[in-house]
């Protein structure tokens, strides 16, 4: 996303250098390349039905990747994305199954997810603990706790409110869910926050040069705390979208959410070193991950191979980031 550094290309600049100032061009080309390969090898890939499926399969990782982007822009990383989201599904599902009001149950679950983010943010911003360790610890604690709460097993969640975002509507020959719509709306809102407001500008500044941010009077610690809490809130909302996708609360779900969300962010052009990148890239990155998994599934390839390919992809993207950083 270029608006973090609004750049009006100089009149003299050639087309190529102008194109290079739009950071999302690379990810778009990668996405198109994957689509082309899958479309050629399997005619079913481009069918409206399959494209709708890809979008729906992108909802959870795509929405989690919004929070992941915010955290990575501050030069952090969030390894608890999936765990916090699963916390949301299990708490909401459990409460509803116990007979509590669905809306209040979901709200409570979202608040709990936000608090998880707030705790992680407190440890990162007040105690200066590395985000990597804090969120890895959160992942371990939540995973164990959730298995204990649910006695290890998944359970169905049959409730019309919790499953609301799975309802469909048609756009031409495409069948979309409200979850897809919700994801896109969240992207739009987060994009506005990040690119058009002071708050977002300060996220970039903190990731870019925290000392400079502090010297100009930006409350760096408080801002970091807000970033992690907002990320937690987004993971909580994702829990609702996840229940709309699959009406099942499973403590073992979303095992690949870390890999997939980080891949989406990094392929989308956001730097792991912080301060560079944005949400347009992340959305494209999430679509790349979705297309990749869908295309490989259509080709009958084992999910383990999908993880392998995703792993290679994220390493390539990070290597690319590292190289371009060295050139700066």
């Amino acid at each position: 996303m270029s608006s973090a550094t609004p750049s009006a290309p100089e009149a003299s600049a050639g087309l190529l250098s102008r194109v290079k100032t739009i950071p999302s061009v690379g990810p778009v080309l990668v996405l198109l390349a994957f689509c082309l390969v899958f479309a050629v090898t399997n005619p079913r890939f481009l069918a409206p039905h399959n494209l709708s499926i890809i979008l729906q399969q992108t909802i959870v990782v795509g929405t989690l990747a919004i929070g992941q982007t915010l955290v990575i822009l501050t030069a952090g990383i969030d390894l608890a994305v999936g765990a916090i989201c699963v916390l949301g599904t299990i708490v909401a599902g459990k409460l509803v199954n116990l007979g509590y009001d669905p809306m209040l149950s979901m709200l409570f679950a979202v608040v709990l997810c936000t608090l998880s983010g707030l705790v992680a943010g407190t440890l990162v911003s007040r105690l200066d603990l590395p985000p990597f360790i804090v969120t890895l610890g959160t992942l371990g604690i939540l995973t164990a706790a959730l298995r204990l709460i649910s006695q290890g097993g998944a359970f169905p969640v049959q409730d019309s409110f919790l499953g609301l975002t799975g309802n469909t509507f048609r756009v031409g020959s495409f069948v979309l869910t409200y979850g897809v719509l919700a994801m896109l709306l969240l992207y739009a809102a987060a994009w506005y926050l990040l690119n058009e407001t002071r708050w977002g500008r300060h996220v970039y500044a903190i990731g870019n040069n925290p000392e400079a941010a502090r010297l100009v009077g930006i409350p760096v610690r408080r801002h970091l705390l807000q970033v992690y809490a907002l990320a937690g809130l987004i993971y909580g909302i994702t829990a609702w979208l996840a229940l709309g996708r699959i009406p099942n609360a499973d403590p073992n779900a979303l095992q690949t959410a870390n890999l997939d969300s980080i891949t989406a962010v990094v392929i989308g052009g956001t730097s792991l070193f912080g301060g560079r990148g944005g949400l347009v890239g992340t959305l494209i990155g999430a679509l790349i991950v979705g297309v990749l998994r869908n295309g490989l599934t259509l080709a009958g390839i084992d999910p383990l191979w999908q993880d392998l390919v995703t792993g290679i992809l994220v390493i390539l993207a990070v290597a690319f980031d590292q190289l371009s950083r060295r050139r700066r």
């Binding site: 040069n209 400079a212 100009v216």
Partner: peptide
């Protein structure tokens, strides 16, 4: 003004000039 360059390199000149005091 400090000795070390207290700027955010990835941001453009106006963003740096108004850093922390952005106009709405």
């Amino acid at each position: 003004v400090y000795q070390d360059l207290a700027v955010a390199p990835a941001l453009d000149i106006p963003s740096n000039l108004f850093l922390g005091r952005e106009l709405l």
